[in-house]
């Protein structure tokens, strides 16, 4: 019984992670501007990775490898938002045309 419960939890977590990754891929392809595309791309690296890592933990059982997996998640949670921030900053600095147009829209 408990085994089945664990398997079920594993499957649910893995599928949730996969769905999030799929949404991210679709979003990156569907949205039009760099800043919009950053939004789904950042989601895949944080929430999607966390769910998939948790599913791996559930599947393999709780031992010292769990720590390594969680370390990977922690690393991504530190680096991925920083990456998004830098991309956003670079877009802000280089894509002047788009931002000027947007500012005009906001004013109007």
């Amino acid at each position: 019984m408990l085994e089945y419960l664990r398997l079920f939890l594993f499957a649910v977590l893995l599928l949730a992670g996969l769905i999030i990754q799929l949404t991210a891929v679709l979003g990156v392809n569907r949205f039009r501007f760099a800043v919009n595309r950053m939004h789904p791309a950042g989601m895949a690296d944080t929430l999607g990775l966390l769910l998939m890592a948790l599913s791996a933990v559930v599947y393999a059982g709780f031992d010292w490898i769990t720590l390594k997996i969680l370390l990977v998640v922690a690393l991504f949670w530190i680096t991925s938002p920083v990456c998004s921030h830098l991309i956003g900053r670079l877009v802000r600095e280089t894509d002047e045309e788009h931002f000027e147009a947007e500012a005009k829209e906001w004013k109007a």
């Binding site: 920083v82 921030h85 830098l86 670079l90 600095e93 280089t94």
Partner: peptide, 14 residues
Amino acid sequence: RHFEPEDDLILQSA
């Protein structure tokens, strides 16, 4: 110099 993320606090803390 123009494109360098100079003294970016977030990047530096990370």
